Amino acid sequence: MQLKLSFVAGLIAASALATAAPLEQQERGINIDISKRAKLTVDGSSQIDWNKVDAHMASLRTKYAKSFANYEKNTGKVHSLKRDLPEHLTKRATGSVALTDQEGGELWTGTMAYGTPSQSFPIDFDTGSSDTLVNPGAYTPSQSSTSKTNGDQFSTSYGDGTTASGTIYTDTVHIGGLNAANTAIGVSNQQFIDSSEGSQGISGMAFPQLAAFGSNYLPYFYSLKQAGVVSSGKFQFDLRTSGSSLYLGGTNSAKYSSTPVYVGIDSNQGFWQVPATVNTQSIDSIVDTGTTIIVAPTSQAKTLFKQLNLPTFTQDGSLYAYFNCNSPPKVTFKYGSYSKTLSAATTSFGTTNSGQCVLSVAGSDLGLNAWVTGDSFLQNVVAIFDTDNNRVGFANKA
């Protein structure tokens, strides 16, 4: 049967998890090795592969269209950040792109397993969404003695009326030595993510309000917390060119060299959405490990490009700026009292065919009035996501 959402029940379940944060030394956490599964450049070159970039932008439009649709279905309200896409971009967030997310981006992949005996598969950890979804064949419920289903279906709708759908199961999740029973996993009826680069699905780490499953099924990290296998509702991303990690159930102070600065969020909005400034321009920032570069609303990107005095060009409807690679501009993000300037390596995500560096901040209409702050920023910091106290923390890397 079609899943009937009970958002009030979900909020009660979620709030039960939001206990006072334990002391750092009492946190029982576990480290998960993660790695980058793709790049936006041509193999063996710094030159940008624009087909991958265009696909990544289209996928972001799809992703946020999904999240807004789920939010509205769960809460009965239109999300405050939602903006209508221009007509020429609407179809890019629907149809075949929606059913197959050809990300082509620098997504962060680790190993997760479900079932008894466990079935392992590589999966992208994404703080910009809330469900654990896998392609058909990645997880086979009939091969697990602990798999259950009520026959509940998940369905994600798009602007042109098409849907991606499948069946919700619960089973024991295994990740980094942690185990939690009755954790939700959705098995899609069709391939929805390109598996050629290693990943078989997406595991969302945002809040239940964005879940396509509805609030009767908590995201997997909440299930770990509920099962008591982690004592803290924090998780930490440390993204690097090598040796990246996801730490579940606390913070790993060996990874950072400064005291974390925390900024509060409104968890009712579903996203890890934080007020910030970029070169003095006030913005809303969605901290999203599932996004490669930094994507701003076009008008706000233009303001930054003008401040930096950079020339621009348009590619597939998105606006980019470029500069001499020997003279990178200064792009500084400030969250509360924490300030971080992009490193020279992360100020650009590749070069044009003429050898100019392209700024890692792009302007694009994704259908939301916020910056999507992805990998190009996150590789400069250690980011801590605290579900106990509804806040995001930032610290310098060790």
Results as ranks from 00 to 15, higher is better:
Val78Gln: 03
Pro260Lys: 11
Lys73Thr: 09
Ser130Gly: 10
Pro297Val: 14
Lys340Leu: 04
Ala398Thr: 15
Ala276Asn: 11
Gly355Ser: 08
Thr156Lys: 02
Lys340Ile: 13
Thr149Met: 10
Asp266Lys: 14
Ala13Trp: 03
Thr289Pro: 00
Ser231Pro: 10
Thr146Gly: 06
Ile283Ala: 14
Gly350His: 00
Gly204Ile: 05
Ile30Asn: 03
Thr172Leu: 04
Ser145Leu: 07
Gly44Arg: 11
Asp33Gly: 12
Lys82Pro: 01
Lys397Ala: 10
Tyr320Lys: 02
Ser348Cys: 07
Gly76Arg: 11
Gly137Cys: 06
Leu81Lys: 06
Thr373Met: 09
Phe271Lys: 12
Gly128Asp: 00
Gln379Val: 14
Gly110Val: 13
Gly115Leu: 13
Pro311Val: 08
Phe192Trp: 03
Ala20Ile: 14
Gly115Cys: 13
Thr373Gln: 08
Gln236His: 13
Lys63Ala: 03
Tyr217Thr: 15
Glu24Trp: 09
Ser318Asn: 04
Thr156Leu: 05
Ala227Leu: 09
Pro86Asp: 07
Thr183Asn: 08
Asp388Tyr: 06
Gln2Met: 15
Tyr320Ser: 02
Ser343Arg: 03
Tyr247Lys: 07
Ser244Arg: 03
Ser118Leu: 13
Pro260Ile: 14
Leu246Ala: 08
Ala180Thr: 09
Val8Asp: 09
Thr94Cys: 07
Leu342Thr: 07
Thr341Pro: 00
Lys63Arg: 07
Leu17His: 05
Gln190Cys: 00
Glu27Cys: 13
Arg37Trp: 11
Ala395Met: 13
Ser145Phe: 04
